[in-house]
Design a protein around this nucleic acid. Sequence first.
DNA 1: CCTACCGATCGGTAGG
DNA 2: CCTACCGATCGGTAGG
Lengths: 219, 219
Amino acid sequence: MNDSILSPRPVAVPSPKRAPRRRPPSTQKHEDKRTAILRTAAQLFAANGYEATSLDMIADQLGIHKATLYHYVDNKESILFQCLVMSFGDLDAVIERMKDRSIPVLERLRIFVRSLAAAQNNDFGRCLVLVGSRPLDQAPGDSIRQFQRRLDMTVRDLITEGIADGSFRPLDPSIFAALLFGALNWVPRWHKDAGKLSIQQVVDSFMDLLTKGIEVSRR
Amino acid sequence: MNDSILSPRPVAVPSPKRAPRRRPPSTQKHEDKRTAILRTAAQLFAANGYEATSLDMIADQLGIHKATLYHYVDNKESILFQCLVMSFGDLDAVIERMKDRSIPVLERLRIFVRSLAAAQNNDFGRCLVLVGSRPLDQAPGDSIRQFQRRLDMTVRDLITEGIADGSFRPLDPSIFAALLFGALNWVPRWHKDAGKLSIQQVVDSFMDLLTKGIEVSRR
DNA sequence: CCTACCGATCGGTAGG
DNA sequence: CCTACCGATCGGTAGG
């Protein structure tokens, strides 16, 4: 499995003056277990849906009891929220890279699409795409949706920039973004790791289709 | 609301010899009530998810008691199944039309996409796209997924035909179908009836994008 | 004997 | 990390 979005885990930044460090143990073993819980939960949420996945199912899968989960997480909803946050991985850095005008806009779009596809086709990404933020309360759900709007805005800005510099023909950036996100968000529903095409190959084919179109060039 | 997918209800075919006519009342009023239950359920399923929607919520919305629902439907799962069947509406006829080679293949593809988009953006279609067949048992779920495979196959066949007759450039029909269904299936998640673009305008823009591509024509 | 529907509660299981 | 439970609510069904 691809663990890359988990690798750059931020090291705990020490507080200036003798931090209290209250409840959370924050040891490495505790963090590893917590991550294992989130990953297992993400898999089960993606497979069965949020409401149809019980905490007992998550605990059983890990060989622990349900009550033990509460040593690592606050409640069921916070598990989903943390899974969705994990799913964004390093996309924040990717969004920043998209502002680098030294790279041709079409090339930047390709990088973005590959990065997004990679993030959405692992345990946490599948949880985001297949479950989403609907089961969450207003506040946590809004923070997830806010990040997704940033992703959408990033694509629309690239298209607008590409039209302005003559890379793209005139078109509605919102329509393009809707088409692209729909296509990418649907991939986890049908792509099998055992299939003949990798995720990279699939999204590169998508980009090929979108740049050139399907009609034969006239003349 | 668009009731067109409900209109061609098959009239009850009488049995050859003095049919027993057992349990199902099958009166018009009974059928109307049953359809109202399915439509309300479809709305609530789409809004809250299947498991998070209780039979009490459906009954309350209709101003009746939960127990009364059981005079019209067998159980909760059969409600979802019937909603999904309704969502296919007259798409079966549309699939047949796609075999008419007197219509240019690109034009047939446009008709298909418009029909599918119309079917997926009403109460029952939103239930199909937002809930899907996952909560169903093996047998009923498989029958839903079988119809969806027919839709997928229809698109792939059109692309294959279009490549053969020179309408389309060489491309992977499966990739095109995956891209198209992803884009269309995502529409109910973001399109608002109050928005500036109608469903028709959205999917026509999609087709424009897919046929012509986004890059400026070179030379 | 039928339909349509009610108030009440069944056995089980949810998150905590 | 487990046993033992809670308040509530689930889908479904009883008698009338």
